[in-house]
């Protein structure tokens, strides 16, 4: 067993940044402990020889079906945008990005 899991508080901040999850300073240390515990569990996989084993991304051998390339849905833009926090003239509004 190797031990690549030795997460630092900086690692937690970096992972939170990648996931775009804002964390209170107080949440970082407990998360570091939790993630370290979970990753230690996951480490068991490293003891297994998987040389030459085909990765399984999907259960079964399901082939994805293709449908005919024709319009099947009606335009429901207003209904689909109704749950959005801020919409104007069919656009989703966000804070100004370009000054």
């Amino acid at each position: 067993m190797n031990n690549i899991v030795a997460l630092t508080t900086d690692d937690i901040k970096q992972i939170a940044h990648l996931a775009r999850i804002g964390l209170d300073e107080a949440a970082i240390e407990p998360l570091r402990d939790d993630l370290t515990t979970v990753l230690s569990l996951v480490e068991q996989l490293n003891a297994i020889d998987t040389a030459g084993v085909e990765p399984m991304a999907h259960p079964g051998n399901a082939e994805l079906r293709l449908r005919d390339d024709v319009v099947s849905e009606e335009n429901r833009r207003d209904a689909l945008q109704a749950p959005a926090p801020d919409v104007e003239q069919g656009y989703f509004l966000v804070p100004r990005v370009i000054e």
Partner: peptide
């Protein structure tokens, strides 16, 4: 190390 490995173990 994680995702690919887990998918291989999933196959096993």
């Amino acid at each position: 190390a994680y995702y690919l490995k887990a998918q291989q173990v999933r196959r096993l």
